[in-house]
Nucleic acid binder design. Sequence first.
DNA 1: CTAATAGGATGATGACTATCCTCTAATCTG
DNA 2: CAGATTAGAGGATAGTCATCATCCTATTAG
Lengths: 180, 180
Amino acid sequence: MRMSQADKEKSHARIVASASQLLRERGLDGASVDEVMKAAGMTHGGFYKHFDSKEALIEAAIGAAFAGFAEPLERGEPERAVAAYRALYLSDGHKNHPGIGCPVASLGPDIGRAPERLKSAFGAGVRRIVAALARVRKGSAQEREAAAFREASMLVGAMVIARASDPATARAVLDACKRQ
Amino acid sequence: MRMSQADKEKSHARIVASASQLLRERGLDGASVDEVMKAAGMTHGGFYKHFDSKEALIEAAIGAAFAGFAEPLERGEPERAVAAYRALYLSDGHKNHPGIGCPVASLGPDIGRAPERLKSAFGAGVRRIVAALARVRKGSAQEREAAAFREASMLVGAMVIARASDPATARAVLDACKRQ
DNA sequence: CTAATAGGATGATGACTATCCTCTAATCTG
DNA sequence: CAGATTAGAGGATAGTCATCATCCTATTAG
């Protein structure tokens, strides 16, 4: 049963959105085409009408994840946005909902094993977040960027450690990082 | 062709060692039983004489990875050991050889999706590293532990970001973190 | 309004992989 | 040293998954 062009675009967006969430929840190879399509309300049949390959979907999904996760950091007044971002990043909610959280914390190592093209896209996403964090720092441009890189590293590492550990250790890392 | 008990133990150790490396290189689901056994110099046939399941192998491999990676940090004079650890952690060599590197940076998110038992083991490994890092800090026990948690987070996050990014971004994160 | 087109459903194919079974030759037990 | 035991090889089985081929039907160009 054929659908209109507008409907196809909606389908496309739903596929990307469900992939973006499922990949962050289960890892780069954790969601089958069939599962992604089911989560988008379809069967696997039409998938290749939307993407040339699963890899192409993954690329689109990562882009969507970065767009969704970096955007609130860039919007509004910098001091406030960054403060909110820090609190959100180190929250239990973020720890428990990787599907809508930071793609670096959920997919970083997987991307490390992926082709260079994906790494470039990922690096661009990281730089975007770092640039936003650097706005609220003092000092030279270099110093501000370096401080932002260190903060981003700490945030990512804390979330990775928290998710990979028992609850007590998780709380200890997150609390320690909040205190700074 | 049966081998002696001593030889079996050697085989066992080789299986664990090759799994420990392959898992860190390719992710928790990235190495098949066949590949692990081949890397250990055997065929897949004898695997279940050594482990009840692939999951049991993974558990042993993670334990071995932590043991190998945390041990040098605990040995010798603390100040010196910690300084060497920091330099090694943020080095290009560590970035380019995840198979013999920090298991948190290579497997963290995968463990986050694993059963609670694995997370407890992982959390214990993290605490072991944090305790060693805390020895060279000033202040109360709590303050020292918190500072160590922050440092461990930064190290892990920096390596995750560096591996997942283009070379320029990778250098930028690692350099920024070295500067602290 | 008709014919060509293309979403999306179903089903098939081929590759890969965890686990199990069988067999052989060597070790261990007594 | 004979018989029971077992490490590891080779092969088989069942399940999963990406991708392809076909079909149906609604859209849409003309």
